[in-house]
């Protein structure tokens, strides 16, 4: 065995984070489009399609996040010390938003008639959340955390005055809207809902541009903020190139109103290449320059136990996830609203 346990651990976690980002983006974006539709009187076009998608999956989305942060502390306990101490405020704000979002979603769907205020909160929190969560990635680039009496402290002024912070915020928001719009275009098209497809397709095209521009901008800014990381990014240039080509493919298909399914698959590939490219180039640091994979790693016995638990868990989950996808996402009758649903 030549692969380090550290690497297995981080790949598993990074994959779950990727899963969370994709699923949550769809969810956040859908909430935003829903609210936006409500306030521009286009609600009748979108609400049905969005609710149909969101209803059965919101808890599952949340679990991906929980899985990620529980796993990080399991595989890399020292992250609790560095990130836990410094991130109190930003992560608490993110929790607050998540809590309001999750609960009001359930309250509204299962509890009562829809209320404009809820929908608004739901939509707004969907934009603020990626912004709040993306701060974690920004901090990991280093330069914002310094040590005081042996304890890490976050320098808020440096953080909020850095252009890197704000580009990552903008990227996270526009990527959320872009991913969500492309997915929902496909979903609406499957449901044979022509007006919704047309509207969502427009949103997809609108948000494509800011996404790619900020992504490029961030690479450029890293050159000054963290030259070491920048060098490693350049070394993986081919991954970002593939990602760019896939992006063009998605936009082209959506533009030509063709094969929305394929368009979404290309988008998946685009983000996968960019996300893993970014992750690999971050290696070996978890927090520049304080913490690497290797000095934060748990003991071998725990690592092996976690990996075994993970494999056993997947064996249980994959069939169940397949079941829920078959019943809801890919069930023609359910998607188009023909099948009787009740709760």
């Amino acid at each position: 065995m030549s692969v380090d346990l550290e690497i297995i651990g981080i790949v598993v976690l990074w994959t779950f984070l990727f899963g969370y980002i994709l699923i949550a983006s769809i969810d956040f974006g859908a909430g935003f489009f829903n609210a936006y539709g409500l306030f521009t009187n286009r609600q009748h076009i979108l609400t049905k399609i969005i609710q149909r998608y969101l209803s059965p999956v919101w808890e599952v989305t949340n679990v991906f996040l929980v899985f990620f942060f529980v796993g990080v502390v399991g595989f890399f306990p020292s992250t609790a010390f560095y990130y836990g101490t410094t991130l109190l405020v930003p992560v608490s704000i993110a929790i607050l938003l998540l809590a309001i979002r999750g609960s009001y979603y359930a309250f509204e769907t299962y509890g009562s008639r829809s209320h404009k205020g809820y929908a608004f909160m739901y939509g707004l929190s969907g934009l603020l959340l990626p912004a709040a969560l993306s701060i974690v990635l920004t901090i990991s680039e280093g330069g914002f955390v310094f040590m005081q009496n042996g304890n890490p402290v976050l320098d808020y002024w440096a953080l909020f005055s850095s252009p890197l912070t704000w580009s990552i915020v903008v990227l996270s928001v526009s990527a959320v809207l872009y991913i969500s719009a492309v997915f929902l275009t496909w979903y609406a098209n499957k449901a044979n809902d022509k007006p919704a497809t047309a509207l969502l397709r427009r949103y997809a095209l609108i948000w494509a541009l800011p996404t790619i521009i900020t992504a490029g901008g961030i690479i450029y800014e890293l050159r000054f903020h963290n030259p070491e990381h920048y060098e490693r990014l350049l070394g993986l240039g081919w991954m970002f190139l593939i990602s760019g080509v896939l992006f063009v493919g998605t936009v082209w298909l959506v533009w030509r109103r063709k094969n929305y399914g394929v368009a979404f698959v290309l988008l998946f590939g685009q983000f996968a290449f960019a996300f893993y490219g970014y992750g690999i180039s971050h290696y070996p640091y978890l927090l520049y320059p304080h913490l690497t994979l290797y000095d934060s790693f748990t003991n071998e016995a725990m690592a092996i136990a976690l990996i075994i638990a993970f494999i056993a868990g997947l064996a249980l989950l994959i069939p169940s996830l397949y079941l829920i996808l078959r019943l809801f996402l890919f069930n023609k009758e359910y998607v188009s609203g023909k099948s009787k649903q009740e709760h």
Binding site: G74, F75, P77, A80
Partner: peptide, 10 residues
């Protein structure tokens, strides 16, 4: 959590 994570994360 840094200490406990090493033993009870499972």
């Amino acid at each position: 959590m840094e200490l406990a994570g090493n033993i009870i994360a499972l």
